[in-house]
């Protein structure tokens, strides 16, 4: 039954994102996932919410896994219309400072 056994440790994955065409993949951070498939999906959701990338690699200790070019649209376009994630979306009244 659940709760009795200790939680299995999920492997740590390092995440590399190519910000734009023409730039190399850069390390952006890490995350936990039980396998590569989920690591890649979590990396997309965690590190490219604001259109920070066009391609992702997730790397466990030894292997390397990259997102497939076919998935580019479904991966990244859904972040395109979430303009409210950017501070410039908000109207700040004239003369209000420090926001």
């Amino acid at each position: 039954m659940t709760g009795q056994t200790p939680t299995p440790a999920e492997p740590l994955w390092e995440v590399f994102v190519r910000p734009r065409r023409g730039l190399s993949h850069g390390h952006v951070g890490s995350l936990h996932a039980p396998d590569a498939e989920l690591a890649l999906r979590h990396a997309r959701d965690l590190y490219t919410r604001r259109q920070e990338g066009v391609s992702i690699w997730v790397v466990p200790a030894a292997a390397l896994t990259a997102s497939s070019p076919d998935e580019k649209d479904a991966f990244f376009d859904p972040a395109a219309d979430k303009v409210y994630r950017h501070p410039t979306f908000y109207d700040v009244p004239e003369g209000v400072a420090h926001l």
């Binding site: 409210y84 994630r85 950017h86 501070p87 979306f89 908000y90 109207d91 700040v92 209000v96 926001l99």
Partner: peptide, 9 residues
């Protein structure tokens, strides 16, 4: 910064 501004708005 987005959080603070949305709260202010």
């Amino acid at each position: 910064s987005f959080h603070q501004r949305q709260g202010y708005e």
